[in-house]
């Protein structure tokens, strides 16, 4: 094997990799934020008394969770233009990842809401609070604190899923790594760097989220 490791290439291209990571984080954060909102609404819909809401939410969640993200991305970017809905790569991917995130996060939120003892909302009712007040001031805060661990897991997964944007030639980290690979032929260095950055970022995100959990945990 005549391959001599030369990591200089990586140091020289660090800015491209950093830019790629930035894009990934941006994609992830936007999609996670909007996905969380959708997930929350969907969770309440899944648990609603009205059958229609439950059915629609169930269809949404079941379909999205059983289809690869790649298909959703390809369908939205390449397929939807057929009916006149054209997006740029960025917006298209964020849209796809948001829908994807919403379906997954709805399960986390649903679990969190169900885990709240019935007595808590009954107490709210006995105090004369409206349904909306109970949901916002009682259910949500409790649920939020208890689902943090599961949510953190999902958030990290969704950050990793942002790598699929590379398929649409969005210049995120995976795309950059592949480009450095093909530009410089430094295969091992490029992919080692890429993987390392992903692992380190996921680890850092996990660390930060765990700090959040600790701060926000309901004192026992």
């Amino acid at each position: 094997m005549d391959y001599v490791l030369n990591f200089d290439v990586i140091w020289r291209n660090l800015d491209r990799l950093a830019y790629g990571l930035e894009i990934d984080l941006y994609l992830a954060i936007v999609s996670i934020f909007m996905g969380s909102l959708i997930g929350l609404v969907t969770a309440f819909a899944l648990l609603s008394k009205h059958r229609t809401y439950r059915v629609i939410a169930n269809i949404y969640v079941t379909i999205i969770r059983n289809v690869p993200l790649l298909i959703i991305v390809l369908f939205v970017y390449f397929g939807l233009p057929d009916v006149g809905l054209t997006f740029g790569q960025f917006e298209s991917f964020i849209f796809s990842l948001t829908i994807y995130a919403g379906a997954y996060l709805s399960q986390v939120f649903r679990g969190g809401i169900l885990a709240i003892p019935k007595g808590v909302s009954e107490a709210g009712m006995a105090l004369g609070m409206s349904n909306l007040q109970i949901n916002v001031f009682v259910i949500l805060p409790i649920m939020f604190k208890s689902v943090l661990p599961a949510m953190s897991n999902n958030y990290i997964s969704l950050f990793k899923d942002a790598s699929i944007a590379a398929v649409l030639a969005v210049p995120e980290l995976t795309y950059q790594t592949r480009k450095i690979n093909t530009d410089t032929f430094r295969v091992i260095e490029a992919w080692t760097a890429g993987c390392l950055i992903y692992v380190a970022t996921c680890y850092l995100i996990a660390l930060i989220l765990r700090q959040f959990e600790r701060r926000l945990a309901i004192p026992k």
Binding site: K160, A162, S163, T174, V187, Y198, V199, C202, Y203
Partner: peptide, 24 residues
């Protein structure tokens, strides 16, 4: 387990594909 789970599947696949051929 930590390294594998910290790498997106796409990156894992691409890494395997490119790196293994280079190391023989």
């Amino acid at each position: 387990t930590d390294v594998i789970r910290g790498i997106p599947s796409l990156v894992l696949i691409l890494t395997f594909f490119y790196v293994l051929s280079v190391i023989g």
